[in-house]
Design a protein around this nucleic acid. Sequence first.
DNA 1: GATGAATGAGAATTCATTCAT
DNA 2: GATGAATGAATTCTCATTCAT
Lengths: 216, 216, 216, 216
Amino acid sequence: MTNKQRARAEKTRKAILTAAEALFSTRSFDEVTMRDIAELAGCSHTTIYIYFDGKEALLNELAAEPLRTALRRLERTLYRGNLSPDERLAAFSREFLRLALSQRALYPVFFTVRASRVDEKDPALELQRLRNEIFALAGRALQAALGVHLAEDRLLAYTRSYFYLLHGIVASSAASPESLDELLARLGPTFDLACLCMFRGIRAHVHEGRQEVSPQ
Amino acid sequence: MTNKQRARAEKTRKAILTAAEALFSTRSFDEVTMRDIAELAGCSHTTIYIYFDGKEALLNELAAEPLRTALRRLERTLYRGNLSPDERLAAFSREFLRLALSQRALYPVFFTVRASRVDEKDPALELQRLRNEIFALAGRALQAALGVHLAEDRLLAYTRSYFYLLHGIVASSAASPESLDELLARLGPTFDLACLCMFRGIRAHVHEGRQEVSPQ
Amino acid sequence: MTNKQRARAEKTRKAILTAAEALFSTRSFDEVTMRDIAELAGCSHTTIYIYFDGKEALLNELAAEPLRTALRRLERTLYRGNLSPDERLAAFSREFLRLALSQRALYPVFFTVRASRVDEKDPALELQRLRNEIFALAGRALQAALGVHLAEDRLLAYTRSYFYLLHGIVASSAASPESLDELLARLGPTFDLACLCMFRGIRAHVHEGRQEVSPQ
Amino acid sequence: MTNKQRARAEKTRKAILTAAEALFSTRSFDEVTMRDIAELAGCSHTTIYIYFDGKEALLNELAAEPLRTALRRLERTLYRGNLSPDERLAAFSREFLRLALSQRALYPVFFTVRASRVDEKDPALELQRLRNEIFALAGRALQAALGVHLAEDRLLAYTRSYFYLLHGIVASSAASPESLDELLARLGPTFDLACLCMFRGIRAHVHEGRQEVSPQ
DNA sequence: GATGAATGAGAATTCATTCAT
DNA sequence: GATGAATGAATTCTCATTCAT
């Protein structure tokens, strides 16, 4: 009994998340209504409120899972043995972009720090943690690709720079109505190029860098 | 008397634009209501419809002016005589970021192409034109800084890459509650660094580029 | 001076009436806005309030003139010498329909008695008077065509019957998007037929009438 | 419990329809607001949108039922055995007028063809169908009463003529504030007379008709 | 005589959410 | 566990009308 019920509940919950994800991948937060989600999930819209505390809570919970998946996959990318460090950074970047672009509408949720009451067990906190880990991961990938050890603050600056680029790529593509594959087919090489250039520039800056500071 | 009336009208119109700008700088398009704007502007919400054709039109008109200003200032930056080409690119970047970050909430309006009926005299068209000009400007600045002539499509790819970075910087900072000055004080150097690295990487890619292609 | 002003005023007034008439001939009362009228009349919408006490007053005044014209033309029709009495009735009917259908949107204003505060100099009163005269005219035409003198109440009943038909023709065609000419080209013969039949039926009823009463 | 809910829903739905009917019987489509309806129905105005797709849909749905009833009753009238053919036509007419006048305000909805996107399952289509059936019914009644077989187009012209009269009667009485019974008490005989005359005229035209065509 | 500026009242509609079952 | 019924708050936008000039 209890088992069956739990299974059913879990299934409904999953259905809601899946439906919401599908809808948010096409439309923005405000454009998706609870009723849309319920319809696609095959349940009543009131049911959603059993599992989630409201629309925003659903959104946060929704974001957490892909982000967990993303983190896992990005980690795996970084420890693949058959790649040189800079190939690894490239692979990391490509993977990151693929994940982010496949969830374009959720991306702002992933990577925008939203003011929110600091509430224990707020899924927003979990999101924050995941974000930070991914950022750290990128830092480690960059460090490895650069091949020299850097002071923490310098690495932070470089990692930020690199992330700006990644964010910019995603942001620039966010409004596109193209599917992920169409997008990558059209712009993938440009994305690669951009990442490569950024990396080269950072490497150059690291090696010769300090005397030729940015003009200011 | 006609003068007085015209003045009054212009004042009201300005008040509406100012109010809208203030509100949009804090909240997003959907979060700001016409009534909010009217209240802040000190007029009835119906008055807004005298001056603008609706909410979206207001938004477009609102975005057009700063963007025009931006274009003018960016042009001026590019023709300042006392700078070397790459200093000019850096200056351009800094100016762009300053402008974009000072209008953070409008930034998506500036740089997100929105599907819209292609309508003569639609202010959206004007926006599109301004966007394109700014992009072209960046392309020319980049070309000049690189110092070699590039085929159009290669230049396009590099310019895009550079813009991704700029977009990313803005997007990353968009949600920050800090004032423009606070933001620049804290992250300005990092922004400069990122731009410099991007430029260096592009330059490197241009010069040694083709043999060492992006892995994949 | 005064003359010039009066002329100008009269011109503006006329322009408003003309514009309103044109618009009401296509769209219904609620669909036409004061601003539409003003635009077509080439004046400010506030000007309309100088000449008319509001939208409804304008409508009444608007209806009066065509109705006066109609009355005049219908009178003329009835006294044309070269027609037999029943040809005259037919001509009257055709003229009535032509007038009514050319002002389809105004027709309800012409012929619908609206509750209204009985106000001296209310144009609604004038309308009422005109309506009554046209009705009386039809009565006389019918009487003449029948060729026998009838008691007042019997004539009233017949005239009413005849008018029901005319009203019905107009009402049935009111919603048609066709122009007057298209409409008459398509249905004119049917209108004639209907009028003819009605007249014949009345004549028959008058002559043999009383023994074969309507079943009930 | 599902039963209880269904009952409640049905009750609400009915309440809305009843309220709307009551309001539309006094005021026109544009004059009745959704909030008026809701208030009279004793529910929130948003509730209306649960049951109907909007104002126009409500109107159509509202019109469909009485029209269905009307059709059924008119059919029954035509097959009553104890009447002669022309008594049947008279009975049909009287029944039609009774129905139409009892729903005066809805009459335009019943019998005015409104332009509308031809949409499967649009209730407007249903209305159109019902209208056509009633018209066909009248045609059959007329044919039977005339006692001779007529070519389709001639019958059509006569039926139209007859309908013009019926429409005219309804239209002329539409604005009256009298109750149905008062109206019939005052004008019923005139209505009968008009119908009788029209029928006699048509019959005359059919029998001797063609040589004495309508002048034109 | 004429007008541009401004407004208040009110329209349809949508949505997230709660309550009774 | 799940749901249908119901709602209140809010949104964009339109219109006839008035007021100062």
